[in-house]
């Protein structure tokens, strides 16, 4: 299946939009209600981080297939300030904005694959995958 949806994140409403796009796609690919909720929530976390910390960016959601069968890949990408210490932000409860600090570590627990790349002054890319089973 060739399905790619891109949502640019510029305002807090775009976070809602990205979330809706994710839910639609998850539903269409045949994910159950529990996984739909996990995927939607993960996209919510990542796009909100873009809005909060980078200002603008984009979320690309697509259907993928691999060794583990069919699934969904989400890439959240920005050209914001970047993250100086990835290990730190992946710890539960670490936040620079008085948030809960559970967004990134929580997202990692909600999905099957999680990868974060960041460069200070250049931006951040988070890629997550969820497989149908």
């Amino acid at each position: 299946m060739k399905e790619v949806k891109e949502t640019s994140i510029k305002s807090s409403e775009d976070v809602i939009l990205a979330r809706q796009v994710a839910r639609e796609m998850a539903k269409k690919l045949g994910f159950g209600l529990a996984d739909q909720t996990r995927i939607t929530t993960a996209v919510s976390e990542l796009s909100r981080n873009i809005y909060l910390y980078a200002g603008t960016g984009r979320v690309v959601i697509k259907a993928v297939s691999g060794d583990s069968g069919k699934g969904m890949e989400i890439v959240a990408e920005d050209n914001g300030p970047g993250i100086p210490d990835i290990e730190m932000v992946m710890q539960d409860g670490y936040s620079t904005s008085k948030g809960l600090g559970q967004g990134l570590p929580g997202t990692k627990r909600l999905v099957d694959e999680f990868e974060i790349k960041s460069k200070v002054g250049a931006g951040t890319i988070v890629t997550i995958k969820k497989w149908l089973r």
């Binding site: 559970q102 967004g103 909600l110």
Partner: peptide, 14 residues
């Protein structure tokens, strides 16, 4: 709280 949302909240670590 639907079962799905409760579960997700737990996963998030809230």
């Amino acid at each position: 709280l639907s079962p799905q949302i409760s579960q997700t909240i737990v996963h998030l670590g809230v």
